[in-house]
Design a binder for these strands. Structure first.
Lengths: 116, 116
DNA sequence: GCGGATCGTTACGCAAGCGTTTCTTTCGTC
DNA sequence: GACGAAAGAAACGCTTGCGTAACGATCCGC
């Protein structure tokens, strides 16, 4: 079942969620980092650096750096692929799942408060 | 009328929109910048640096810098307040309106494509 | 096993954002 | 008019992200 939004609702939703997120979260992930995080958690594994780079349309170092940052925050983890030891598999973490769960709650809450 | 979303829909929407935005827009605004932009365009004027800082819960230089950046991109404009020349009024631009219009279209489109 | 291709990382110089502090202009009050 | 308060900008040192290019490790076909 699709979600039908008016232009006002769409931007209003983005507005209220962004605002709440800025106020709540000092980490201030970039849009790229957030896209990576969501992709890792919403799309079936395995996820590799190369795959993410292709998906986002960015270069590999961008992914490496984003994983460095989010890894330090505990939002993702990296493990060598034993079947092809050139690959690195990006793993989910409990903390990362919690982070996205809170974001989801925020979106739902703000969506519910939309009026127009 | 509120917008009711399931957790999967909420995060799925954020995922697909973030992904599309990263692929389309090389400007890569930060979450703070986007929040400012949305606030300026969705909330009735006038908007001042101080007011935005209070709304976002950040310091004034953060707002000044964000306005510098987005001003250079043509997304917002700054005008001195003639009634109190200490204030700066943040003005909307055609280009900024167009930018947000495209973002809104993207959100609507991705919302429509949500399945679960 | 050797040579080329592939994967992820690191190095480099650069641009942009951060928080704190200081400065300049303007206001309001005495 | 003088003076403290307020708004926004600029300065400072620091951190983080960027794109390009180079680098080690690993795989695979011969």
């Amino acid at each position: 079942m699709p979600v039908e939004l008016t232009p006002s609702q769409a931007l209003g939703l983005w507005h209220s969620v962004s605002l709440a997120q800025v106020r709540v979260d000092s980490r201030d992930l970039t849009l790229r980092q957030l896209a990576i995080l969501l992709h890792v958690y919403l799309v079936p594994p395995p996820h590799t650096v190369r795959g993410l780079a292709a998906t986002l349309g960015v270069t590999k170092p961008v992914i490496t750096r984003a994983l460095d940052t989010m890894g330090a925050l505990g939002l993702v983890d990296r493990v060598r692929d034993d079947r092809d030891r050139r690959n690195v598999i990006i793993k989910r973490t409990v903390e990362g799942a919690l982070y996205l769960e809170k974001l989801g709650d925020l979106i739902i809450l703000q969506g519910r408060h939309l009026s127009l």
